[in-house]
Design a protein around this nucleic acid. Structure first.
Length: 195
DNA sequence: TACGTGATCACG
DNA sequence: GTGATCACGTAA
């Protein structure tokens, strides 16, 4: 079942990050449908230093975050990797959830071809890898999450609280003390979590 | 541990 | 205009 816009438009981005675990992310790029179940997320909010929109600083890159929830925020990191985020909250409240890892569900052959790998490679176990595997790049920046090319579904796989692990976010040492916030969520024991 | 890679951001 | 930086991934 397609996720409703109201799912994204709540004011607590940390709650949305937790509830995105077990949901499915679909793309249809170049006519190829690919999908994976979300197993790792991180919350980012304009009130803390880890966020591109900290202190409501709006730039060309991050302006999508200031829209109503339910849009994709995709940007290029380290000149190589496209990172996919879910914009949440209301207009003017620049919050987002970084999707960091998926368990493949559909179109695995297409994904492996895009990754140029064969066999049992872990093709979606990281934010840069999953974007490449699903064909996500900045052309999808600003798309709604109920569009023809990109959408999210509830597939009845929501993990209970006992299967969710909270930890600090990865790769944001620049955020000072905010780097310690326990805003990363993973599904306990899942094989597809990033390193 | 080292570094590729190029858009972005804060300078002024 | 310019230079430092970066929500990563891979090789070693």
């Amino acid at each position: 079942m397609l996720l409703d816009p109201s799912f994204y438009r709540r004011d607590n981005v940390v709650t949305v990050a937790r509830e995105l675990l077990g949901k499915a992310l679909f793309t249809k790029v170049d006519g190829k449908i690919t999908a994976g179940m979300i197993v790792e997320t991180e919350a980012y909010s304009s009130v803390e230093r880890g966020c591109h929109a900290y202190d409501n600083r709006m730039t060309d890159r991050n302006k999508v975050m200031f829209n109503d929830g339910g849009l994709a925020y995709v940007y290029l990191c380290y000149g190589i990797h496209h990172l996919f985020n879910v914009v949440t909250n209301a207009t003017g409240k620049a919050d987002a959830v970084l999707v960091r890892a998926l368990e493949p569900l559909e179109g695995v052959g297409h994904m492996k071809k895009r990754m140029a790998v064969e066999g049992e490679a872990r093709i979606t176990s990281g934010p840069g890898k999953l974007s490449k595997a699903l064909g996500i790049d900045r052309q999808l920046n600003g798309e709604t999450l109920w569009s023809r090319q990109l959408w999210l579904e509830d597939i009845g796989q929501n993990p209970g609280n006992g299967r969710i692990v909270r930890s600090r976010r990865v790769g944001i040492d620049y955020a000072g003390k905010d780097a310690a916030l326990p805003w990363r969520f993973t599904i306990k024991g899942n094989n597809w979590i990033s390193k």
